[in-house]
Design a protein around this nucleic acid. Structure first.
Length: 299
DNA sequence: AACAGGATCAACCGCCCCTGT
DNA sequence: AACAGGGGCGGTTGATCCTGT
């Protein structure tokens, strides 16, 4: 086949990857890295589009991918995160180490979503579909909605931070400023803090997501703090995080009775505490049901 | 054993955002 | 400011596997 500009146009292959194709892709990336995905297929001798190669690599071939069944902890994490983030699979994958967004999305759509539906819970809103106890449930919904709003604000703050840090890196490169080794990263990500006290999940390292704020990738939080402070942004970020952390603590407290004495919880108003008590019951029931052997599929 | 329907998951598609020019 | 290219994301599809009859 010949294209309009006279160059030979190779028919691109679609569909399932063969072992030979996998080996070619793996060998090429191991030797050269992926570089530009668009030009990779030609270099690797593959009759695939770059996008297909990227997907195959990120969702299947990467060595740091954990495959196989999801643990109950992972299931809980997905449900919790989906309640907060909705269908933002890449963001969810950020907090589930070695799981791809595609895998999480599939798992949600084929299993968890159905399980919640069977339980009479709307998987989109995480609220009971029927509302026999209307008032308490609407308050639960309000609390979750409130948390979701803060979580959204937090994500936006993180995105802003990355943008600023990239700018800073370029600036420093240009000015050739030497800086001391960066201090330990500020605990920007509240879910990481959540992790450290709880499930052992939620490290910010996902095979697919770009929502990775490791100190190495952004040139160091130390540099960043200096820049952000200078720009008068640090206060905003800190405020974002405090509030977000508070909301996340409350959410976690609402799911784990042992955390009900958390600082944020205690500092809340009595009415808010009441809402959280309702919320605690809701989540405990939900998670018990979801993780119960009767409801869990047999693997 | 054969078939139908459901479940699963790899892969594709289209859209959007970011970056460089 | 406008445009193009590259890459990422979420939704969807279709092939395959599984299970029940």
């Amino acid at each position: 086949m010949v294209s309009s500009n006279g160059q030979e146009k190779i028919e691109l292959k679609k569909g399932p990857w063969t072992r030979e194709e996998d080996q070619k892709l793996l060998a090429h990336i191991e030797e050269h890295g992926h570089g530009s995905w668009r030009s990779l297929p030609a270099k690797a001798g593959l009759q695939r589009c770059g996008k297909s190669c990227r997907l195959r690599w990120t969702n299947y071939l990467r060595p740091d991918i954990k495959r196989g069944k999801f643990s109950s902890q992972e299931e809980k994490a997905i449900i919790r995160l989906h309640a907060l983030l909705g269908n933002r699979w890449s963001a969810i994958a950020t907090h589930l180490p070695k799981r791809t967004d595609n895998e999480i999305k599939n798992y949600w759509n084929t299993r968890l979503k159905k399980r919640l539906t069977r339980m009479g819970i709307d998987p989109a809103t995480h609220k009971p579909k029927e509302t026999p106890g209307g008032l308490a449930q609407s308050r639960q919904a309000a609390v979750i909605s409130h948390m979701a709003q803060w979580e959204t604000a937090r994500l936006e703050a993180e995105a802003r931070l990355v943008r600023e840090s990239k700018f800073l890196s370029k600036l420093q490169l240009l000015q050739k400023i030497s800086v001391p080794p960066p201090p330990p990263p500020a605990c920007l990500d509240v879910l990481k803090a959540w992790q450290s006290s709880n499930t052992g999940l939620f490290v910010l390292d996902s095979p697919t997501s770009t929502l990775n704020f490791s100190i190495n990738s952004v040139g160091g939080v130390g540099k960043l703090n200096g820049y952000v402070e200078e720009k008068g942004m640090l206060n905003n970020l800190v405020q974002d995080d405090n509030i977000s952390l508070c909301s996340m603590n409350n959410l976690e407290a609402s799911m784990d009775p042992t955390l009900l004495s958390s600082e944020c919880y205690n500092s809340g108003t009595s009415s808010y505490a009441g809402e959280l008590e309702d919320n605690k019951n809701y989540w405990n029931e939900l998670l018990n049901l979801v993780t119960s052997p009767v409801e869990s599929p047999v693997f």
